[in-house]
């Protein structure tokens, strides 16, 4: 699920950036530092949408670096149990398959894959129904339901299932290349 929230961060800026475009430098550094990171508390920070305020800078003794407390608005993504997401399959093996929904890694184990899909090893490992009409392989897009999350301080990992109504392949790279 996506959220638009305000976060705060202390930015350290090198003295060489002090000048007319100090503020721009500060923002671009903030984006570089923060976007794409993950915190267990808020989820993945997808994008910074604006700066709320930049506090007074504090010059560090010895180094000359200046610390600015910056408040910024950002979009975060945090997966929840029970959430339905669409993901791209990244790896298929005998134990199940891995998929990515944006920054989130999701593992779908083989017993959460419908019983009529069988693992086919080979050049392109995949799960296929007996009549061959549905195939899950690398690069397939699947809709899945998250049934468990593991949230660490800097990492979120999910397990999902496609063994439910309206879940499964939504576009097959093999079908229309």
């Amino acid at each position: 699920m996506f959220f638009h929230i305000v976060l705060e961060r202390n930015m350290q800026l090198h003295p060489r950036h002090f000048g007319r475009d100090l503020r721009d430098k500060l923002v671009s550094k903030l984006m570089k530092d923060v976007e794409g990171t993950c915190s267990g508390r808020h989820g993945f920070i997808v994008a910074i949408t604006g700066i709320e305020s930049v506090g007074k800078g504090l010059i560090r003794d010895g180094t000359g670096f200046v610390t600015f407390p910056v408040k910024y608005q950002c979009v975060v993504f945090r997966p929840f149990k029970g959430e339905i997401v669409e993901a791209v399959v990244t790896m298929v093996n005998k134990m199940g398959f891995f998929a990515e929904a944006g920054p989130v890694q999701i593992f779908v184990s083989n017993h959460l894959i419908p019983d009529d899909m069988e693992f086919q090893s080979g050049d392109v490992p995949n799960y296929t129904t007996s009549d061959g009409s549905v195939k899950i392989q690398k690069e397939s897009e699947v809709r899945l339901k998250i049934i468990g999350t593991r949230v660490d301080a800097t990492e979120i990992f999910c397990i999902g299932t496609i063994k439910d109504d309206f879940l499964g392949v939504i576009s097959d790279p093999g079908a229309n290349p």
Binding site: F98, G148, T149, F157, I159
Partner: peptide, 9 residues
Amino acid sequence: TALDALRLI
């Protein structure tokens, strides 16, 4: 558990 899957592959 399956949640450890990423480390186990």
